[in-house]
Amino acid sequence: MQQVRINQPLLGEGEAAAVLDVMRSGVLTDSGRAGGPMVRRFEGAVRERTGARHCVAVSSGTAALWAAITALEISGGIMMPSFTHASTANAAHFAGCRPAFADIDPETYTMDAARPGPGTAGIIPVHLYGHVARVGPYLDAHVPVTEDAAQAPGSRGAGRTGHAGIFSFYPGKVCTTGEGGAVICDDAGLYERLPDVRNHGSGETPGMNLRMPETCAAMGCVQMGRLDGFLERRRHNARMLCDLLGESVAAPEYDPDCNYGLFTVSSPRRDAIRAALHGRGIQAATYYDPPVHALGRFPYAPLPNTESAAGRVPSIPVHPGVTDATIHGMCRTIRDACWGDARRPGACGAPAAA
């Protein structure tokens, strides 16, 4: 049976050659403040892609969050959604801050534009599944706003409205460095502190070893050059899913600015959908159940929209390796799991993939 993963990196001869060149050079990392030659080249590619004045590459998306919070010198409560990966709260916690969880918009799954509570020292909107959250309203709070764009490389405007933005280049993301992340910003003062934060600190600026290896940066340079092609196919697949799923599930309205890092739908029959897809060799995943505020690591307070979404949303494959035939098959399987009647009208009438 063909196995279709929820996400998979697309690596080729270009990435292999770039990594091999670094290995042959003998320069696998650089402990200097500016980083090695491939790291600097990768940072330039991210700057060019995003339009940011500054970029500092680090070892992961979580490291990027911790570095941004630390360099912004935030101390106190940080408003953030609970409906996201635990890394957002973990980074705040280990930076000495307190996660203050806010509920989400039930339509977009991103943090609603609620007024920050008293004592809020920072805000982290999360661009979940690649959909860019509303950021502008939070600037009125006059506290540092860090955009968690870990899932949003390639989404239009991601990371460019707040005081800083971060990306992840984990293998499950739209493009990858193997492991890696980056912080982007326009502020010269913030940029001046970030290289010290990623390189054990300097003077009063704290830091750790958050350096990105040269091999990872080399892979990332090639991947950034392929990003437009990755995005084109993901958006093609997402448009097909939006059109074909019809009445089967609550699917998002197609958004041409989204990178579709994940394609997530909503249904009270989430578990039946996952089981049916798994039976066909198609991996479906649940992001995120339980949400972070219910993990037991942090004080619990009810978040109705978050808790409702956590029990309803499966994510299904949308990456460039997914063929049109597989999409038709997924839609038919989802419809059958929801209705139990392949003849019911609505969508997905094309034959299933073999």
Rank of each mutant, 00 (worst) to 15 (best):
M208A: 15
G130L: 08
D196S: 14
F169V: 00
G136F: 06
M212E: 02
G189T: 12
G130S: 09
G201Y: 10
L139A: 13
A133N: 05
P137H: 07
G189Y: 07
M224W: 05
H200R: 14
H200M: 14
A158D: 08
I184D: 01
G225E: 15
I166L: 03
G225N: 05
K173N: 12
G130Q: 12
V132T: 15
G159I: 10
G178I: 04
R198G: 01
R193T: 07
A217R: 08
T161D: 13
G181Q: 02
L128G: 04
A182Y: 00
C185A: 11
P153Y: 00
H236A: 07
D140Y: 11
S202T: 11
N199H: 04
G207H: 09
A164T: 09
P153V: 15
R134K: 13
V174Y: 01
E232P: 11
V222G: 01
S168V: 02
G225V: 06
P171G: 07
V222T: 07
A152G: 14
R226V: 08
R211C: 02
P213C: 03
M208H: 11
E214A: 05
L231G: 08
E204P: 06
E204N: 06
H163Q: 12
T177E: 01
E179Q: 15
P206W: 10
H236S: 12
A182R: 00
G220Q: 05
F169G: 00
Q151F: 05
V145A: 06
S202D: 09
I166Y: 03
D187F: 12
L231A: 05
T205A: 04
N199E: 08
D140W: 04
E179P: 03
V197P: 01
A150W: 02
E192G: 10
G178C: 09
L194F: 05
R234F: 10
L231K: 07
K173Q: 02
D140L: 15
A182I: 00
G180M: 01
A152Q: 08
I184H: 02
H163D: 15
F169E: 01
A150G: 15
K173L: 03
L227Q: 12
R156W: 09
H131T: 13
A133K: 02
R233M: 14
T161R: 13
R211K: 13
C216T: 00
L231R: 14
G201S: 11
